[in-house]
Simulated scan of single mutants.
Amino acid sequence: MSINVAVLASHNGSNLRALTAAARQPGSAYAVALVISNNSASGALAHAVEQGIAHAHLSGRTHPDPDALDQAMLALLREHDVALVVTAGYMRKIGPAVLAAYEGALVNVHPALLPRHGGPGMYGRHVHEAVLADGDLVSGASVHLLTDHYDEGRVLAQAEVPVLPDDTPDTLAARVLEVEHRLLPATVQQLALARDGDATERGSGA
């Protein structure tokens, strides 16, 4: 048994690639069943095509009305029986309908050790610049529950990365990304195992 996972990504989709690679391993408790991007030219959508994964471009171009976009995403998630939604480099805020339907089943990966360096505007290179500007000795990655407030959901897992004296935002970003590629699939696997176990207990009447 495995659960269906949807991945939302806006750009290259390197974390998506890590998730699909892990999903192919024996014993995986999840399958990447759907990829959604707000960028029609994203590497994430190209990867979905290569892997034969259902995919969609949903954005202000396809749905100028934010409510319609929210409902279209929710309909797709339900159509593909998605149990867990992962945002990985997704540059749009999730709409209220999807947030409500998937409360507790929406996770995001963030390139810092939350609660440090989170919140509006803290994404990508901006995060690593802030880490270096503050003189932090340690950075890393966090996987957390996604809510309607940026980066404020409960942290589920973290992994540390040392900040080196000669680091630049680019060198730090590269090392943090390597950690994300291990941390995110491991965390999704644990969440999938827990959800599958809960479903088995309910089915057995436990």
Rank of each mutant, 00 (worst) to 15 (best):
G95I: 11
V86Q: 07
E103H: 11
A72V: 03
L34A: 13
P120I: 10
G89I: 02
M73D: 01
R24N: 10
Y123L: 06
D81F: 03
L19C: 05
L45D: 00
H47V: 12
S42G: 01
D70Q: 07
H80Y: 10
P111C: 05
A100H: 05
A31Y: 05
A44D: 01
L132R: 01
S42M: 04
A112R: 05
E103L: 02
A133H: 10
P64M: 09
K93L: 10
H57I: 04
L106P: 00
P115H: 08
A72I: 05
Y123M: 07
A29G: 05
R17V: 12
R125W: 02
V107Q: 11
D67P: 03
H126K: 13
A44K: 01
D67A: 03
E129P: 02
L76K: 15
A46W: 01
L84C: 07
A56C: 01
A100N: 14
A18C: 13
A68Q: 13
H55E: 00
H63G: 06
A31E: 14
L16D: 12
V138I: 13
A133K: 15
V138N: 09
A29C: 09
S59P: 03
G121L: 03
T87F: 00
N38H: 04
L84D: 01
M91I: 15
R61F: 03
A23F: 15
V131Y: 02
R92E: 02
A54N: 10
G135T: 10
H63Y: 10
S42L: 00
L84Y: 07
V127C: 03
V49I: 14
Q25T: 07
H47G: 00
G118K: 09
A88I: 12
G60H: 15
H55C: 04
N39W: 04
Y90E: 01
G27K: 13
N108T: 12
A101S: 13
A22N: 05
R78A: 05
T20I: 08
E79I: 14
Y90K: 02
